[in-house]
Nucleic acid binder design. Structure first.
Lengths: 222, 222, 222, 222
DNA sequence: AATGAATGAGAGTTCATTCAT
DNA sequence: TATGAATGAACTCTCATTCAT
């Protein structure tokens, strides 16, 4: 049952204890992300998180002090995760248009495969972003993605394929928005339009649509 | 014992009472929208709604049975309101490009001035849109806005200014998304980018940006 | 079961409801005094108070907001009670010596018959008197007893039977102390001295002792 | 695994280890006295005692089994301390009146400088003195102070300066009471009388007052 | 002798809801 | 139509205590 057993003898005792404690922390955090992203800080139940994590409820208080502390930690974990992935994006080798398409695609695919991220962000915005603001690790250092957007824009303008005068932050927000809204509001949109937006074909079609829209717009240009 | 009894004769008869009852209902609904949009179904407090509305808590149960019933009514009111405005949009007289720009602008401006709408929708999506689905009045009949988008697209294609082959629902979602995301995630984005996205100048600049992006895209076309 | 039933018909409905609510408050307060005086603010159990009062636990929060609010109210009730009795003391007709003896006796008898008072005060002192200080009704207006002590002292000095130069507050504290300590520390003293200080004969003997000591002291005077 | 084992040889043998253990015990006991006297058995927190003592919480269980065991030990320590001091009192050389004044002064001064003693006793009395009763070391052997009081009384009566017929236990209780009540109820009394009873001048004045009162009483004798 | 991890029982408090008038 | 009183379930958090090393 215990992690210790499987490595008995190969590891000194103290580190093993640390490792187990550390893994307990992680198990709790993972459960917390699921619960908080679905129900928010207030709606989430500590009992439920403990059950999901398979640990004693009090352990949550032992490691994270209180519900808000756990929420904060979960929020930071969620941001840390996407930051790590963004940092690995290497678009410098692609032609600017392909690079921008890849960027949009990355953003879309990440949101598609990480519903927790959207849930956490929505609830955090409902709280006025107070926990993001309180979190130094999150706010410190700009999003690397903005730098990528800016660099790609510059390359495209230099190559004469992108318009000039576009603000990278505004562009990022609009690009992220078309993906984010699709996933974040998928349920109400599906209901209102009577169209199942969770159907993989629809998802893929929408992905193509937003890349085309971002690159070319609606207008046929002379 | 009842207020009605003690002042009988000094007050106008039944119709007036109905009118008052009706207005009490509305006051409660308005308070509910504020509370639910900020905190969601679970997070909202019946006590708080009663306090905001300035009425006795039990009156809420008298008019709406229970918390979920009130939430349902508030959700429907929110949708009804935007539907009513959308129905008044008359874009048929404008050239297609101007019409599309107006459409995007309308969407943006509505979200800007109705934060409750975004709050309600976010929380409803977190609940898997179960109350939207349960609400026949909402799903029955397509959104008039989709018809407007489709008609405008058709006019533009016919006039040779818009590309063909664009799905109106996908277009609507992407256009709505760039506005919605900006307002819905304004707090976290402001914090992460260190840029106050509530500043009216920034709002206006972003509005111009998304219209240009939607119409022309990033690419300089030959 | 209900108070209403017994007076149905003889009382208007609304006042009856008030009366019942008022009596519920009193029942809770009485139970709280018992529990708090025995165990203090921290040690007391809200559950236990509700059980003693025979009411639903939540009613306590309905009437008193929280445990501290109930404690505060109980403390004020305890002070109010003794103040009311003190106000009824009429010693002006007695010769000074008899008046002073009566005063000591009153104090002693009150403590003897109101163990709650001692319990509340001890716990409140352990808390640094923070709730007494927060209670305007208690601190506002000097204790009437001090005025009685001062007046009796003056009369005695004028009559040539009491020493002059005695401070009434100091005198009050010392007179109260000999009684208070006896009851407040009765359990440990009984144990340490192997003498049952709850025995009525011992109580009466100690009462005589302190009156004699206060009036005459230890010394045989020439 | 044990600290002893790993440092064997670098540390002086058993006696030193015992000494350290002994001192750890003492550190815990000192912390416990502070906490228990302030908050009582129920109100005290084991966590807090461990923190005050700067030791791991589990060590408390190692040395004292459980919270009640620690409380018992703290209570005994407090009694042992005052017994030790009382045993050193030598009043046989003083004239009876001076001896009695010294006795009162000693009692007053001890309480003044040992607030823990008062706190422990108050809480223990609230518990019905059950731990004092369970503690053989405390109850075994009369308080030496009572013997001193009795002897001093006898000397005074023999010398014709003290009244006869005074019970030494009753006298002790009343003498202790005037001091004890002053310190134990200092906070509420200060608040109620609007007079800072912690002011050293007030303390000194009250000390003089009680000695005078005990020796001479209120009455001017012919 | 000493420690960090883990637990179960129970405490105060909140909250939607119902009762009774 | 409107209100104050009352309730039961659930929730966050605390705390003494034990486990395992």
């Amino acid at each position: 049952m215990s992690t210790r057993a499987t490595v008995a003898g190969t590891e000194p005792p103290a580190p093993a204890a640390d490792a187990q404690a550390n893994s307990t922390r992680k198990v709790i955090l993972a459960a917390a992300r699921g619960e908080f992203s679905a129900k928010g800080l207030t709606g989430a139940r500590v009992n439920e998180i403990a059950a999901r994590a398979g640990v004693n409820k009090q352990l949550i208080y032992y490691y994270f002090d209180n519900k808000a502390g756990l929420y904060q930690a979960a929020l930071e974990a969620v941001y840390a995760e996407i930051r790590a992935l963004e940092r690995e994006l290497k678009l410098g080798d692609l032609p600017p248009v392909d690079a921008m398409a890849s960027l949009i695609g990355f953003s879309f695919d990440y949101l598609s495969s990480h519903p927790d991220f959207i849930g956490m962000l929505n609830h955090e915005n409902a709280l006025g972003a107070q926990y993001v603001r309180a979190s130094i690790p999150i706010t410190a250092g700009n999003s690397p993605l903005i730098e990528l957007v800016a660099a790609t824009l510059r390359r495209g303008v230099a190559a004469g394929v992108f318009r000039s005068g576009i603000d990278p932050v505004e562009l990022y927000i609009s690009l992220a928005g078309v993906s984010y809204f699709f996933f974040s509001n998928r349920m109400t949109l599906s209901s209102v339009f009577g169209r199942d937006l969770s159907d993989p074909k629809r998802v893929a079609a929408y992905r193509r649509h937003i890349i085309a829209l971002a690159l070319d717009g609606l207008r046929v240009q002379p």
